[in-house]
Design a protein around this nucleic acid. Structure first.
Lengths: 244, 244
DNA sequence: CGTGTGTTTGACTGATCTCAACGTCGGTGG
DNA sequence: CCACCGACGTTGAGATCAGTCAAACACACG
C-alpha cells in the first residue's frame, strides 16, 4: 500500500523552510536526518484511521490529503486539508483522532513517535516551531467554524476556492488579478469539506461560473478571472483575518 | 472596566493543575509568580477584540467567556467556549484573532506578552504544557467542525448540553445517571455557538424537554435525568472521540 | 405599574437536501 | 475502431428543515 522511498538530504527538501524543521540549524538537521524515513502513499489510500494506532509523526513533503470524521450513519465532515509541510500525528498520543486519506500520491517524511518525542525535548527549535504551527492550525480551524456555521452555500464555495488559491500560491503572493489552479479534491470531497451535499456544491459552482466569477476548462481546472471579485463573494473584504 | 485583583499564591490556585503552569515545579512557579498579575472583568465586558492589540497572555482562573467572530452583516459565530484553565492570547502575536467576551465575571491570571515569551524559552515545562493544551484545543475545534457542518439542530443542541455537562463535571467523572447544571450562556450565545438562530435553539430545547430528555427549572437551570439517553440524541454512542 | 430584555411560540418562507435522471469522460474489451 | 461500462458530475422536481417575521409571554427593575 505504501512504499519506502530513498531519503533525500534536508538541504534540498521542498518543505525545508516551512515544516517542523524550519527553525533548525545544521546540527539539529543532522539529528533529524538520522531518524527520518520517507514513505510514498498512492492516491486514495489511508494515511491514518480514527481510533487506530499511529506509530509515526509525519510531515507531508508532496501531495495532498484530507483529515475527516465519518458519523455512524455515513455523514462525513472534513476537518482539515493537508498540504506540503502540514503534519499528521501528535506527540504524546498513540492513536489517531481522525481519518486521514491521500487525495493525490503523497510523500511523507516520518519520525517514529517515541524518537520524535525525545527530539522535542532535545531540540527546542523543533518544539517552538511545532507550537507555532499548531497555533496557526488552531486559528485556521476556528476560522473554518465561521464558514461552516454561518455562511451560505455560495459563500462556502467561494471561500473554499479563495482559500485554496491562497494556499497554493507561493507564500506572500498578492493574488490580485487572474489565477489558475487545479482542484486536488473531487466534488464529493469539496462537499464534505464545506458541510454541503455534492449536488449543492455542483450547483453553486455552476452559478459562480454563470456569473463569470470562475471559468472551468475541466471539472478540476479552475480559472479565477478576477480574484478580488470572487473574494468579495466569499465575504472577504480584504482586511484579512477571515480566510484560512 | 476591569480591576486589578490581589495576587493569590499558585499553591492555592484553583487551576494550578490544569493551566499552562500544570507541569511546573516549585522553582518554575516562583518564576511565574514574580511576573503574574490578576485582573477581574465584569460579566459582558470584552477581554479582547479581533484585530486589536493584546498586551497579555491570560489564563481564566474563574468564570466563563466566549471567543467569537462577527461578520460585517452581523452574523456571529462562536468558535470557542473558555472555561477555567483555558488561555487567551498567543505567544509571538500582538493582535487578537477573535473577540473574547466575559459571560460571567471572569478572573484572569495574566503575563505581559514579552515576559511570557521569555518564560517559554526558559521553562520547558510551560512550553510543553502549552503545546499539549493547544493540541487538545485543536482536536476540540476539529470535533466541533463536525457538529457545525453535519449535525441537525436537535443533535447540535443535545451535543452542546452533553459537552457542557462533561466540561463542568470534575475531570474524569463518569456522568452516567442524572446531572444538574446551570447554563453560563444565554439562548443567543448558545445559538451563536451552534450556528443556529435563537428561535431554532429555543424550539429544540422545548422539544428535548417535551421528550423528557431534559428538565428546566428556569431558563438557565437544566437537569438531565438520563445522561446516556441525551448522549444518544447527540449521536454519541459512548465509544468516545466525538464529543469535545 | 409600566418598561425593557430575554425567551417562547406561531405562521410562513426559502435555502438546502433528497431522490432521480441524464451527461461526460476515460478505460476496456470485443 | 467503436461500443460498453463505471465513476464522476450536472441538472431537475419536490420535500424538508431551519430561517424570518411577528406576536405573546416572563421576569427583573425602576
Amino acid at each position: 500500500m505504501s512504499k519506502l522511498t530513498p531519503v533525500v538530504p534536508c538541504a534540498s527538501c521542498p518543505i525545508r523552510h516551512s515544516a517542523v524543521c524550519a527553525e533548525c540549524d545544521s546540527d539539529e538537521l543532522e539529528m533529524l536526518s538520522s531518524i527520518k524515513s520517507y514513505r510514498t502513499i498512492p492516491a486514495g489510500a489511508p494515511l491514518a484511521s480514527a481510533g487506530e494506532s499511529l506509530t509515526h509523526f509525519s510531515s507531508i513533503v508532496t501531495g495532498c490529503a484530507t483529515m475527516s470524521r465519518t458519523l455512524e450513519d455515513g455523514r462525513r465532515q472534513t476537518v482539515g486539508l493537508l498540504l506540503p509541510s502540514d503534519y499528521i500525528g501528535r506527540p504524546g498520543r498513540a492513536r489517531a483522532a481522525f481519518d486521514v486519506e491521500a487525495l493525490s500520491e503523497v510523500t511523507l517524511c516520518r519520525f517514529e513517535r517515541r524518537a520524535f518525542e525525545d527530539l522535542l525535548r532535545k531540540t527546542p527549535h523543533v518544539a517552538s516551531r511545532l507550537l507555532k504551527m499548531t497555533l496557526d492550525e488552531l486559528d485556521a480551524a476556528r476560522d473554518w467554524a465561521v464558514v461552516l456555521g454561518r455562511m451560505t452555500a455560495r459563500e462556502k464555495v467561494a471561500t473554499f476556492l479563495i482559500s485554496l488559491a491562497r494556499r497554493q500560491a507561493a507564500a506572500g503572493d498578492a493574488l490580485a488579478g487572474a489565477v489558475t489552479m487545479r482542484l486536488p479534491l473531487s466534488r464529493e470531497a469539496i462537499a464534505d469539506h464545506l458541510g454541503l451535499t455534492i449536488e449543492t456544491t455542483s450547483r453553486q459552482m455552476t452559478a459562480l461560473r454563470k456569473d463569470g466569477l470562475i471559468e472551468m476548462t475541466s471539472n478540476r481546472d479552475i480559472r479565477i478571472p478576477d480574484f478580488g471579485a470572487l473574494a468579495l463573494e466569499a465575504g472577504d473584504d480584504g482586511d484579512g483575518g477571515l480566510i484560512v
